[in-house]
Design a protein around this nucleic acid. Sequence first.
DNA 1: TGCCAGGCCGGGT
DNA 2: ACCCGGCATGGC
Length: 225
Amino acid sequence: MVSSSLTTGYAGPVGDQLISIYERLLSAFGPQDWWPGDSPFEVCAGAILTQNTSWENVRRAISNLKNKDLLRPRAIYELSRESLAQIIRPAGYYNVKAERLQNFVAFLVDEFEGSIDTMFSKGLETLRPMLLDIKGIGPETADSILLYAGELPSFVVDVYTVRALMRHDFIDENADYEGVRSFFMDHLPADVELYNEYHALWVILGKNFCKKTKPRCEKCPLSGM
DNA sequence: TGCCAGGCCGGGT
DNA sequence: ACCCGGCATGGC
C-alpha cells in the first residue's frame, strides 16, 4: 500500500488533508495505472501529442508511428515535418505537434546522443528547466515527461486539478501552475507512485464530476471536505 | 449541433 | 502581467 510510505514522508495538517483527499479519490475510482508498459520515449511522445486532445486520438497517432517503426528519436529527427504531420494526423493540431515532437527529439539527439536514459540521468532539478526551454513543451508536458517517462517525482498539474481544487476552496482562484504544483510537492513526500496516481485521479474526477459547465455536485467524492 | 479533449505559443493590450 | 485567438481531429 502507498500509505505506509506516506506516513514517513511528511506529517502536517495540509499534508494530512491532501492524503485524505487522495484516499477518497482512490477508493472512489480505484488505481488508474497510467502509462504502464510503454517505453519512456513513447510516453514522452504521448505527453506532447495529448496536449488538449483526447487520449484515444493520441493512441491512433502513436499506433501509426509504431506501425511504420518510427517511434524512435532518430527516425522522428530525420523525418520531414510534412510526413510526420500526416502520420500523427489523428492527434489533431498535427502541424504544431509535428514541430513540437521534432523540437523534443532534436534536443534529445543534440544534447544526449538520442539516449532517453542519459537525458533522465540529469535528474529532476536540472532537466525540468531544460525541458521548459523547448518550444512546445510547457509545464504540464514537462512534468508528465519527468514523472511518467522518467519516474522522477514531479507533480503534474492540469486544468482538472486546478478546477477541482478551486471548486472545493482548497486553493484561491488566482493560483498559477507553479503555485499549485508547489502546494502538492511542499506537503507530500517525493513519491513517484503517489504523484503518478494522484494526477490520474484528478483527471478522472474532472471527467466525471467537476465539469467545466456544471457548478457543483453532491455526488462528488470530495463533497463535504 | 456544438462542445469537449490529459496545452502551448505569440501578439495585443 | 494578463488575455485571447489559433491550432484540428474524433466522440458524444
